[in-house]
Simulated assay, not measured.
Amino acid sequence: MNDEQLMRYSRQIMLPELDITGQERLAASRALIVGAGGLGSPVALYLGAAGVGELRIADDDVVDLSNLQRQIAHRQDALGQPKAASATRAVTARNPEITVTPLEERLDGERLGAEVGAADVVIDATDNFATRFALNAACVAAHRPLVSAAVIRWELQVSAFRPGGRPCYRCIYAEGDEPQLTCSESGVLGPLPGVAGSLEAVEAIKILTGAGTPLFGRLLVVDALRMRLRTLTVNGDPHCPVCAEAP
């Protein structure tokens, strides 16, 4: 680690739980961020600023005026441009040392499996359950840790899922039972995705460095309107079709 890197990451290196060893682990890591919107924006910015060596940002959407209220990686001059490319520019503007690759596509099938398998941590920053279920299944199959978050109105949820372990995301939500409301239909407070995405970045850094205790088997729920926080224990579903030994 050179002098400039020591200065850039000095406040982080001072943390005894990270130190230089943790910083070097971040530099040698690859994170896959699926979604470059309200959640993916702070995840990408903070993981990039923290010195994660390689980020791959996947999103097939373009920047819309309605996004700018909460998707902080994008600016007015990026309207109509691919979100993955816009987020990449925002990250590299803050830390040109790391490698950031935009994936302007919807990952699925073998392509999704390949990207997940090549990552050290996967961050679910999407806004639909179909993609979340597919991401979860790919992470379980590839034994990769998954960090997931969701926001709606004034509420956020964050959790993490250990590689090859239980519970998985599907243990919490069954297909057909998931909520149907979206931010476009119900609204969302602008800063809330930033809070949730920042927490996802914290969980990813903990997983990559071995610091602290990730939210494995726990679901953090925040009611921002009343500022109430709860942490719920989540057990593996013995009948889960994804992670149960005998589905």
Rank of each mutant, 00 (worst) to 15 (best):
S186F: 12
G197K: 01
Y173N: 09
L181K: 15
D177S: 15
T182Q: 10
I152A: 08
V195P: 00
V188F: 07
K206C: 05
G190K: 05
G194F: 02
C183L: 13
E175P: 13
Y173T: 12
A160L: 02
T182Y: 11
A211D: 03
S198T: 13
S186Y: 11
Y173I: 12
G212H: 06
E175H: 15
L192S: 05
E155M: 10
C183A: 13
D177I: 12
R170S: 13
L199E: 04
W154E: 09
T182N: 10
Y169T: 03
T182E: 09
I205W: 04
S186N: 15
G212W: 08
V158G: 01
A201K: 01
L199V: 08
P179W: 06
V158D: 00
P191K: 10
L189Q: 12
E200Q: 15
G164R: 03
S198R: 03
R162N: 12
G212I: 08
R170V: 11
A204Q: 05
L181H: 15
L192V: 14
G210E: 11
A160N: 02
I207P: 00
P163T: 10
A211H: 07
G176I: 11
Y169F: 14
V158A: 05
G212Y: 11
L199I: 11
I207S: 01
T213V: 14
I172Q: 13
I172K: 10
E185Q: 15
W154H: 11
S159A: 12
P214E: 07
I172F: 14
T182D: 11
A160S: 12
L189V: 13
E178K: 08
L208N: 01
G187H: 10
L189T: 12
L208K: 01
S184F: 11
W154V: 09
A201L: 05
Y173F: 15
E155H: 14
A211Q: 05
I205F: 06
A149Y: 01
V188G: 02
G176K: 09
G187A: 13
A211E: 03
I205A: 08
V151T: 09
I205E: 02
Q157C: 06
G210V: 10
L181E: 15
S186P: 06
L199H: 03
L192F: 08
R153P: 05
A174L: 13
A201Q: 04
T209V: 07
E185I: 14
P167Y: 02
A149D: 02
R153F: 10
R166C: 04
A174W: 14
W154Y: 15
P163G: 12
P193H: 08
Y169A: 01
